[in-house]
Design a protein around this nucleic acid. Structure first.
Lengths: 326, 326
DNA sequence: TAAAAATACTCCATAGGTATTTTAT
DNA sequence: ATAAAATACCTATGGAGTATTTTTA
C-alpha cells in the first residue's frame, strides 16, 4: 500500500491537538516545549500538506475551522492509538508475559503437559502457552517456517539446526505381561536377557519407535509385525500377551501400575531419550526460552519423581514438597 | 496529555509493514524507495525505542517475532487511520461539501429557509446547513465565539465587526385591516399619510422592531402599548383592528393575502432592511461563504418574486421559470 | 562463495532556535 | 502600545545516501 512518506508527522498532530486545547499558539508551544515559531511553521506546513485551513488566526485568539475540528478529533484518536502501540510493544517485549507457540511430540505431550502446566502458570502468570502436538519432522518444519516459537522433542531424533536446552533425561523401561518370563524377575534387565524377545513398537514416524528399535537391534530382539499408533495401544497389546515393549519412564505414572503388567528398568547402558526444548538459531526469544526450559527442568523431577535423570540426585524427593520458585 | 515527541515515526511503521510483507529488508527497502541501510537503521532505531526485537534476522530470510507480529497489525491499522485522516481533511477542505453552522433571525428564518433550501441543495448536494434561529444579538455573540460559521441578519442592526455579502433588499409594506382608512386607498403610501396612525410593533430584541420603529418616529406615527412576539401574532392583531403595522415583504407570501387585510407599499424613501450573510473577519470560510451568499442572492427573486429588490429589474418573473443553475 | 544485513561515514533536508517584523486591537 | 502570530535567518539533529564489512549457509 503506502510506500510514499506520510504527508504528516505525529508531532504535527500533537501540535494541532495542543493548539485546539489551548486555543493559542504561544501556550500550545509552551506546552509542547518548543518555540512558538517552530510550532507555527509545523502547523502551516501541515495545513499545506492537507490543503486545508485548520485554524482561524486572530490576534486575540485562535478558532478551529470545521475542518480543523474534525481533524483534531481524528488526531486525538490517532495519538491515543499510537501510544497504545508503544505500550503494547513494551508489554510484548517480555516474551514470558505474552504468548508462545510450542510444539510437542505425541509420546511426550499427554504425559508432560498436565504435569508442568501448573508450575509454568505459577512462575509466569502472564504467559500463555499454545501447544501443538505433532511428530518431530512436522514440528521441526513448523519451527523453521516460523509457525512455532519452540518445540519439546527428543534430542535423539533429527532435530534440525537449532539451539536447545535439556529438560530431562527419560530412561526407557521394559514392560511385559505379568506372566511373561522377562517379567518374573525383579531388578534391572540387561540387554542380554532381552535377546530374542518379541518386541512391539510404535508406528513409523514416531521418533520413540526409532529409539526403541535401535536398542532392539543392539540387543538382537525381534520386532513384531504389528505396530501400535500410540503408547496406550502399545501397553494394551502387551497386556494382551502379544509381546514385550519399551516405554519411556515419563509415561509410567499415567500408563501404570497395572496388575497384569510388570515393569523393569534397564541395566546400564540403559536406553533412554533426552527431552529438550529447541528453538531456531538467532531467535530473539532465546533468552526467554532458555529461562522457560530451566523452569521446566526444575519442575520435572518434582512432577515425575519416577522418571527424570535429575531424580537420581534426589532418590526420594517428596512429591508434595514442590518449592515455590519466585 | 502527550507533549513529548513521539517515540516513533509513521515512516518507521511503513518500513515495519513493508518488511512484514516481503520478509526481506532489501526488498522492503526497494518498495519504500530507500536504501537498505536506511531502512535497517530506522528499524533498529524503532526496536530500540520500543525496547523490543521485532524481527529475527537470518541471512536467508527474516521472521517476525510474536511482538513484531502484533506490532505489524497495529501499525497497519494506524497507517490506515492516518491515510483516512488525510482523506477526511482533504474532503473537509471544501467547505461547501461539509457542514456549515448558520444563524438566522426569527423574522427571516421561517420565510426564507423553506424557499432557498431546495436551491442550496441543488447547487451544493454535499453541503449540510445547520440552521440556528435566534435574535441578532445572540447570533452575533455565537458567531464571535466560533459557535456559528455565519449568520443571516438584517444589515440595519448592530452586526458587529464582520465581513458580509448582501443577499437581498427587503422593503417594508404597510398592513392594515380591510376596513381601516389607510387600507382604503391603493398605491404607495407616503410617510405623511401615516402620520398619527396607531402602529403595532414587535417585542424588544427583534431588530425588525427597531427598523420599523425608526420609520414610525420619522413619520410621527404612534406606537401602541401592545407588542407582539412574532410576525404572525402581529398580523393577527392588525386583523383584529388593534392598529396598523409594517411587515417585511419577505413575510408576505406566507402571511398574506387575507381578505380581512390590505397591503400597500411605501412611497420612496421606503423603509426597508437589507438581508445579508455575515461571517467573522479572517474566517477561512470567507470564499465559500461569499459563494454561498451569491447562490442565495440568485435564488431569492425566483423564490420571492414579490419581495426582493432584485425583483424590480424583472417586474413579473415567472415563478415557475426558475432557471436551473449549474 | 555469495547474498543479505549490519557498519562506517558523509551529506543535506528540515525541525527547531533566536531575532525581528507584521498585524490588529 | 501591546500582544500574538508570521517571517527571516541560522543551527544542528538525524534521515538517507554510498561504500564497505560482517555473517553464515
Amino acid at each position: 500500500m503506502s510506500q510514499a512518506p506520510h504527508p504528516f508527522t505525529l508531532r504535527q498532530l500533537q501540535y494541532v491537538v495542543a493548539v485546539a486545547d489551548r486555543l493559542s499558539f504561544r501556550k500550545a508551544a509552551e506546552r509542547c516545549h518548543v518555540s512558538q515559531p517552530s510550532l507555527s511553521a509545523q502547523l502551516s506546513q501541515l495545513e499545506q500538506a492537507l490543503g486545508v485551513r485548520l485554524f482561524e488566526r486572530d490576534r486575540r485568539r485562535v478558532l478551529l475551522t470545521p475542518a480543523g475540528a474534525e481533524l483534531v478529533e481524528r488526531a486525538r484518536r490517532l495519538l491515543v492509538d499510537a501510544d497504545q502501540l508503544v505500550d503494547a510493544a513494551k508489554r510484548a517485549g517480555d516474551a514470558l508475559a505474552g504468548t508462545l507457540r510450542i510444539g510437542v511430540i505425541p509420546t511426550i505431550a499427554p504425559y508432560l503437559l498436565p504435569g508442568i502446566t501448573p508450575a509454568v502458570r505459577k512462575q509466569y502468570p502472564l504467559l500463555t502457552l499454545r501447544w501443538t502436538e505433532d511428530k518431530t519432522e512436522t514440528l521441526v518444519r513448523s519451527l523453521d517456517a516460523g509457525t512455532l516459537d519452540a518445540a519439546v522433542l527428543a534430542l535423539e531424533a533429527r532435530v534440525g539446526d537449532v539451539e536447545l536446552e535439556v529438560i530431562a533425561d527419560d530412561p526407557f523401561v521394559l514392560v511385559t505381561a505379568a506372566d511373561h518370563p522377562l517379567g518374573a524377575k525383579r531388578g534391572p534387565v540387561s540387554a542380554a536377557e532381552v535377546k530374542g524377545a518379541n518386541v512391539l513398537l510404535l508406528d513409523e514416524g514416531h521418533c520413540f519407535r526409532e529409539q526403541a528399535l535401535s536398542f532392539c537391534e543392539t540387543a538382537r530382539a525381534h520386532e513384531l509385525e504389528f505396530r501400535a499408533t500410540s503408547l496406550p495401544t502399545l501397553v494394551q497389546m502387551v497386556a494382551g500377551g502379544a509381546g514385550v515393549t519399551l516405554l519411556p519412564s515419563l509415561a509410567l505414572s499415567t500408563e501404570l501400575p497395572r496388575s497384569d503388567l510388570r515393569v523393569r528398568p534397564f541395566a546400564n547402558p540403559a536406553p533412554h531419550r533426552t527431552i529438550v526444548l529447541v528453538w531456531r538459531k538467532h531467535s530473539p526469544l532465546a533468552p526467554a526460552l532458555r529461562e522457560l526450559a530451566g523452569t521446566l527442568r526444575e519442575a520435572y523431577p518434582e512432577v515425575f519423581p519416577l522418571a527424570g535423570s535429575t531424580a537420581k540426585t534426589k532418590p526420594k524427593p517428596a512429591r508434595t514438597a514442590a518449592r515455590a520458585r519466585r
